[in-house]
Design a binder for these strands. Sequence first.
DNA 1: GTGAAAGCGCTAACAC
DNA 2: GTGTTAGCGCTTTCAC
Lengths: 340, 340
Amino acid sequence: MKKKLSIVDIANQLNVSKTTISFILNGRAKEKRISEELVERVMKYVKEVGYKPNSLAKSLRTGKSNTIGLMVEDISNPFFASIARLIEDRAYKNGYKIIYCSTDNDTHKTQELITMFRDRHVDGYIMAPPEGIEEDIIALLKDGMPVVMFDRHLPMVNTDYVEIDNLFSTYNATRHLIDQGYKNIAFVTFASEQTQMKSRVQGYKDALGASNLKQNILEVVFNQNEDLIIEPITDFLTKNKKLDAVLFGTNHIGTCGLKVISAMELSIPKDLAVISFDDYDVFKLHSPPVTAIAQPVEEIADNVITVLLNKLNARMEAQRPQSITLKTDLKIRKSSLKIK
Amino acid sequence: MKKKLSIVDIANQLNVSKTTISFILNGRAKEKRISEELVERVMKYVKEVGYKPNSLAKSLRTGKSNTIGLMVEDISNPFFASIARLIEDRAYKNGYKIIYCSTDNDTHKTQELITMFRDRHVDGYIMAPPEGIEEDIIALLKDGMPVVMFDRHLPMVNTDYVEIDNLFSTYNATRHLIDQGYKNIAFVTFASEQTQMKSRVQGYKDALGASNLKQNILEVVFNQNEDLIIEPITDFLTKNKKLDAVLFGTNHIGTCGLKVISAMELSIPKDLAVISFDDYDVFKLHSPPVTAIAQPVEEIADNVITVLLNKLNARMEAQRPQSITLKTDLKIRKSSLKIK
DNA sequence: GTGAAAGCGCTAACAC
DNA sequence: GTGTTAGCGCTTTCAC
């Protein structure tokens, strides 16, 4: 177990002061007019012995940790998992590490996690915030921490966010069902005040309203336990036999919905047409393939990290918060077509 | 933006030395025989002003960061995502944070990531190691870092790992196909020397051998790009028309395989019976539902973190590395039954 | 151009 | 029982 060497060891070995080494290592040699020859000698030696600065000490001194805190609803949800993956890649490429956690949409848990992140001195925050966390975020911002939200935002909090056009997404999907001739269209969503869910409901309502159709909305609770989602949907579909189409507000609800439909032995789209939010393997491979509102995950991740890196690099000039809205893509498949 | 207070501020405010504060905060009051009255006064004040010790300084001093490095193949793969989620929960509950990354099974990338983790002074490593990383892990172990592997292990590296009984899993699945009357059973796997993949192939071979059946193995390359998996499978299935069953060696291959089968308009199980590794929504919801080898993800995560925490807490006594092997569960569904 | 030294906030050996 | 003090390894001001 070779002892870790420090900047002092290097300095002693080379008969130079540690200040000089520090300057050279931080690329400030030119600025400090350190001789090229010395720079080269130091660099060579450093590489030779494989010296790595202690990032902890560096962070303690500079107050920067080169770490980004990422908070998603649930890392095992495919939407968040892919976003996390893409953000991870981009962050590492820019010298940042990611610490992540799943909030479960739980305000209290999220508060604790924010505290943990603060403790660890993360340089910036990326999050899909749960409800009721406004105060904590505002406190963060007040202390000068960059925060970028995605998937949803908090109307009372003035910070950057990247979202999709939720309203148009469901409006468009609902219109598609109407155009196909469906008349009793249901919408299943989480009971939630989150912006994205509210817009999704609104888009659905708007589309129905424009055609004078009746609303059928089911709200389920957000929960890790699938049974708590499956049960109310089963109930709902059993009681509303007239429904001829259903739009699921999230991928998780969509997956659960498909399980219910399969258990009830309903035929898609003959008995019930289906559209779900988020496009992924379960929907693509389903028989029949399920029409889905595809979110541009790569674009979302790209935008999120770009916005955050900008803020991180330009801490000085407090720029105006940006809000970015991206388009979704309705992937039309058999599950939503009308059978003649 | 209120200035962060330090232990010195507390000490001054209370007219006590910072050592005393430190002892009290670290629960060593009893041991140091500090008066209960003082302890109470300090605790009360600390809570009142919301003082939080600077964990960076603490880490610098103690050499402990309370961080665990988690390396998976790909965080967006549902198997790894669920494991990560479970490990995350358990780790947080025990006061550890997780830094994670996806290795892409790329040795070079993994080396860089290990370096990053070392830089950040993680206390322990959890990883599903790619091939060729033996040296780096051995170096880690030599420096006294706890490393726990899962999903696979490195035969040349003597450290703890948690795995499933891969050999029996595929043996059993293959036997099931044979019992159903299938005779031309293929196995699709990643071209890999990793222990888990080798055992999976072996299990398949053993089962066939016992029944004197011919092997049909397709090896595809590990790649993020699905097309590079879909294409060879398409090719393979097109060229081997006699096949009547196929066993997919991982969930990702299984998903790709289903896409191919769907594109080729083969009927499951009439034209081709199917079994895949890993049980998740895509397989459960498929029509017909796909027989799958279910890994006990919770058990895996539990064991991994338990083993690691043990090592972390008992750094002194170098215990013998443990290897834990868990059982899988073959979920038999329609896709592998013989149609009469 | 280079070096000495202060200090980031904390812990722990040692002194009293 | 409590306080003094020496670092952990680094950056950066200021002096030469």
